[in-house]
Amino acid sequence: MKTKESDTKTYLGMPLYRPKVGFFEFSSCEGCQLQIVNNESTLLDFLSLVEVVSFREAMTEKSDDYEIAFIEGSITRDDEVKRLKRIRKNAKILVALGSCACFGGVNQLKNRFKNLNWVKKEVYGRHPVDTEPVRAVEDVVKVDLKIYGCPVKKEEVEKSVLHIALGKSIEIPKYPVCMECKANENICLFDLGELCLGPVTRAGCNSWCPNSRAGCWGCRGPADDANVEYMKKIMKEKGFSEEAILERLECFGGFADFLKRKK
């Protein structure tokens, strides 16, 4: 994608620098990438912010000349480790895009089983198949920025890119989903007898699920200072089973440290 001078975006009257970006997917549903191409109304704006040089799902051309690499998915096989290390070498800034990349996402649920051979057999029978325990991107290479969510919020991706282009620091919410939910004036799900991880999960999704009257499953991982033990206590008092709470906490991998600490 070449641009003419006249297409260059400006910010406060200064021509905006358009970083070259590549999108790379590992073990994932590719939903986080789709969040970017799937928002027609703002797709063209996004494309004017960056120069996409590698995006296998959308284009045939590929290039190793990029500054920002967006990594989607978790790491589950040796060839993925090699590919990821190569991308790390090429990129100035490496972004973990979405919960699979940030903490293993739903994929890490397979790590619950100590016996990886059982996992393989359950799906492939006696046929040999290559797989390793699921790892987050930062367990393999250095990650410069994490964008949480399953899926990510497009606005957050755009804001991050803009801030990188402007050399500004990137701030993600430290507070929990409950804050957004209250601002959105939702009926609290606890009052409807439903479980919700809003009190301990990092905000930034604009309380996506509670807005639909569905409880939060913690896809964005823990908020700063999340008090998971306290929340568990309150929830048990409200009559939710320990198991239901644990299933939610372990679903996307973000709370792994809290679950480990307890054991």
Binding site: C29, Q33, T76, V106, N107, L109, K110, V123, E243, E247
Partner: peptide, 30 residues
């Protein structure tokens, strides 16, 4: 493609996990 082992992931979990987790098999046809 690397397998993610969705069928194994679900084993032992409550029924309400099924749509939420298996929806993540695919972003296009979730």
């Amino acid at each position: 493609e690397t397998p993610r082992f969705f069928e194994a992931m679900l084993v032992g979990r409550n029924w309400d996990n099924a749509p939420l987790i298996t929806g993540r098999i695919c972003g296009i046809c979730s």
